[in-house]
Write a protein that binds this DNA or RNA. Structure first.
Length: 420
RNA sequence: GCGGUUAUGGUGAAGUGGUUAACACACCGGAUUGUGGUUCCGGCAUGCGUGGGUUCGAUCCCCACUAACCGCCCCA
């Protein structure tokens, strides 16, 4: 039996790779525009990093990590997300000591989660993410959201919905937590098993439950918005004001609860048109305690991550095409043994002169060689055979209009460069 | 991790318990000793996801496994 690709992974074939290049180029351009610098961190890290960073109670850590021991008996994990690594690097290289703050950074790379694959969910997937470390200014919250929107719009996505919430600071969260427990505890038996477990661990997540979505207590549950203390409320108000003044539409959703433990204050998602159940294109939020949690000084931070796989699906649903028109300047058709010997030499000359050029390698007949030239979208075909070699001239055919010229070998590159 | 659907060539797909597994597209060749995108003709699955079972005989029936898709959970 032939070996198959691991479950939940996929190959990007040549016909699709150019889309990825375009998307990655767009991401880099937008980051340059917003003055975010690339940082590259390893694809695996100490398992501890994610346990402490992402949070022990999260689904990611509890059941989705690709963990292994290396030959030195170290516990390592293929990264399930990017923020923990970036914060680790920020602390490890003492980037908090750099004069330039906040450190505005981005990454594009593979992430790994052991999940049941379906459209828009893979075991290896690719995230583009940005992190701004060191600033607690509400305008950076707005900036990071706008960066993501700019990126999507640049690629032609229109059907986007920004959803916002605030989880408040630790004091606000604690107050809300108590209120939630008090609200649900008397009737928790009417809820699903998961919710019963959530009650003590993370009652916030009950609000996210799809099973008990219609339970009357859901509608009357205490909203985090009502439990924000003054500082938290004030901060959130400033973020919203900036977005308003920039003309950014958003929807407030007090039940927007992100799955990672490190979030506080502003959280957000961008939803898009997508196939099936998955519509979250991008998610992120503020994580003010994370740097100190991972051994650095008390430092605020905020970031987002988005999936390129889901972006591609959304582009598809919206009918946005990233198709380009790859073409070849020139294709050499060789007829006969002598010409076949000459072809690679001539081809090399064209290439060295900067022309995108190719020839047949399948011993095809003339007709077949022309077909290949057509598939490669060659603008010109250079035909050489015995007759041409005798007079040191090639027949050059313009594939668009079918016209032909005789061109001396010596002037071939000049001729083609002028025509292209 | 749970539930449902599916699995035939490079692709999209018909199909039957019994000798040669439709059709279309793509590809290769010929009509046109040396010219593509049109047309006509020809070629192209020792094989029907993998392993086992039932049977005189299985691509078709049964079981297991694997994978894909959809839903749940959760997320990007």
């Amino acid at each position: 039996m032939t070996i198959q690709i691991p479950r939940g992974t996929y190959d990007v074939l040549p016909e699709d790779a150019f889309k990825w290049q375009k998307i990655e180029a767009a991401a880099r351009e937008v980051c340059a525009l917003f003055n975010y610098k690339e940082m590259r961190t390893p694809i695996f890290e100490s398992t501890d990093l994610f346990q402490r960073g992402v949070g022990d109670t999260t689904d990611i850590v509890q059941k989705e990590m690709y963990s292994f021991k290396d030959r030195g008996d170290r516990d390592l994990t293929l990264r399930p997300e990017g923020t923990a690594s970036f914060v680790r690097a920020y602390v490890e290289h003492k980037l908090f000591g750099q004069p330039s703050q906040p450190q505005k950074l981005y990454y594009i790379g593979p992430m790994f989660r052991y999940e049941r694959p379906q459209a828009g969910r893979n075991r290896q997937f690719t995230q583009f993410g940005c992190e701004a470390l060191g600033s607690a200014d509400p305008s950076i919250d707005a900036e990071i959201i706008v960066l993501a929107l700019t990126f999507y719009r640049k690629l032609g996505l229109k059907n986007l919905k920004l959803v916002l919430n605030s989880l408040g600071d630790p004091e606000s969260r604690a107050a809300h937590r108590e209120a939630l427990i008090a609200h649900f505890k008397p009737s928790i038996g009417e809820f699903c098993e998961d919710c019963q477990k959530r009650l003590e661990k993370n009652p916030l997540r009950i609000l996210d439950c799809k099973t008990d979505h219609n339970h009357p207590l859901m509608a009357t549950a205490p909203s985090i918005i009502d439990y924000l203390n003054e500082a938290s409320r004030d901060y959130f108000a400033k973020v919203k004001t900036i977005l308003n003044e920039m003309g950014i539409d958003y929807e407030l959703d007090p039940t927007l609860v992100r799955g990672l433990d490190y979030y506080n204050h502003t959280t957000f998602e961008i939803m898009g048109a997508s196939q099936g159940a998955i519509t979250t294109l991008m998610g992120g939020g503020r994580y003010n305690g994370l740097v100190s949690e991972l051994g650095g000084p008390e430092t605020p931070g905020i970031g987002f991550a988005l999936s390129i796989e889901r972006l591609l699906l959304a582009l598809d649903v919206e009918g946005v095409s990233l198709d380009s028109d790859p073409s070849l300047d020139c294709f050499i058709v060789a007829i006969g043994d002598k010409a076949e010997q000459k072809a690679p030499v001539l081809l090399n000359q064209l290439r060295q002169a900067g022309l995108q050029a190719d020839k047949d390698y399948m011993v095809r007949k003339v007709k077949g060689q022309f077909k290949q030239a057509d598939r490669d979208r060659a603008k010109f075909v250079v035909v050489i055979g015995d007759e041409e070699l005798n007079v040191q001239k090639a027949v050059v055919k313009n594939m668009a209009d079918g016209s032909q010229d005789e061109v001396a070998f010596a002037t071939l590159t000049d001729y083609l460069k002028k025509k292209i």
